[in-house]
Simulated assay, not measured.
Amino acid sequence: MNRLNALKHFVSLLYLLFVLVVSSCKKEETTSVENAAVLHPVKLDLPGNFSPPTDDPDNPLTEEGIALGKLLFYDVRLSGSNRISCASCHRPELAFSDGVALSHIGESGNTLQRHSPALINVAWMDKGLFWDGGSTNLESQAFGPLSNEDEMHQNLLELEYKLGQVPDYVKRFQQLFKSGIKSTGIVKAIAQFERTLISGNSRYDRYIRKEAGTRLSEMELQGLGLVNSKCRGCHAGELFTDNSFHNNGLDADFSDGRLEGLFQGHYRISYQLADLGKFKTPTLRNVMLTAPYMHDGRFATLDRVLVHYENEVKVTATTDQLLYQQNGKAGIPLSTTEKKAIMAFLVCLTDSSFIQNKNLIE
Score class of each variant (00 low, 15 high):
I120K: 03
I120Q: 01
N121D: 15
N121Y: 09
N121G: 07
A123E: 05
A123F: 04
W124G: 02
D126Q: 15
D126W: 11
K127D: 03
K127G: 01
G128L: 05
G128T: 07
G128P: 01
L129M: 07
W131Y: 06
G134L: 06
N137G: 07
E139C: 09
S140I: 12
S140Q: 14
A142N: 13
G144Y: 00
P145L: 06
L146N: 02
S147M: 15
S147H: 08
S147R: 15
D150G: 14
E151W: 01
H153E: 06
H153A: 08
N155H: 00
L157D: 12
L157G: 10
L157E: 13
E158M: 13
L159D: 03
E160D: 12
Y161E: 15
Y161V: 15
K162M: 15
L163R: 03
K171Q: 13
K171F: 08
R172L: 13
R172S: 13
R172C: 04
Q174C: 00
Q175C: 00
L176S: 03
L176T: 02
F177W: 05
F177I: 03
F177T: 01
K178P: 10
K178W: 07
I181E: 01
S183K: 14
S183R: 13
I186N: 00
V187F: 12
V187N: 05
A189Q: 03
I190F: 08
A191P: 08
Q192G: 05
E194P: 04
R195S: 13
T196S: 15
L197M: 12
L197I: 11
S199K: 07
R203P: 00
Y207T: 10
I208Q: 14
K210P: 00
A212R: 14
G213L: 11
T214P: 02
T214Y: 13
R215K: 15
L216N: 05
L216A: 04
L216G: 02
S217N: 06
L221I: 09
L224S: 04
L226D: 06
N228W: 05
S229I: 12
K230S: 10
C231T: 08
G233S: 14
H235W: 05
G237L: 11
